[in-house]
Amino acid sequence: MSRTIFPPGSLTSIADDGDEFRFCSTCAFSQACLDEGMDKGALRDLHILVEHVGPFPAGAYVFREGDHFDAIAAVRSGTVKTSRFDRDGHEQVLDFHLPGEIIGLSAIDGERYPCNAVALDRVQLCRFSFPKIAVLATRLPGLQKQLFKLLSRGISHAEQLSGDYSADQRIAAFLIGISRRLAPRGSSADRFQLTMPRTDIANYLRLAPETVSRVLRRFQDDGSVRVHRREVELKDRVGLEALAEAMLRA
């Protein structure tokens, strides 16, 4: 099966956008709803709540820390970075959100967004009014399960990164993590673009930018990866997974 390379460029086709009766192919909730036997037509109520927003150009804020929280959003295309600034004004990158993933979940227990969300490239979103999806979730156990799954993913990320892991382990886990997140959406698992700048990758992994490059260059020299500009090809998946295992298991 031929899989597209993330993110789709102008030589390849763009992901299916769905219509009034079908979900976008990247929708984070479509599977949960379909599992409940509800198609998009039956979910007309929900559909009215779903709003396609964007495109946001690179660098644009999707929301800012302290903004009133009223909606969660699923990424339809592009990559969104969430981050916080500490008291000294230093940025701490919290996560990267790829197509099909949800942003805004960490706000669920409050009234305001606890972080900033910035588009890293051209981003399109699907916005859901949060109170309404929460009500719907009480009626659809599958949707609720999906919400909790997405929530816990965010939490386990933070735990992973605070552990005592080497730079090699962190970078291998990062690559394998991205690969595993892209694969279910029909993107190639072994070849993808890192849409985030190395300074953000380094910040996220708690490493120096030079360390990220040095380790990747060593991975390239020993044949585990091939890096061409932003594009990464995983050549030795088994080796990288072994290296990443301790961290991904945590």
Partner: peptide, 10 residues
């Protein structure tokens, strides 16, 4: 700027 931000800057 973009090239500085590549995973392995050229």
């Amino acid at each position: 700027g973009i090239s500085n931000d590549d995973p392995i800057p050229r």
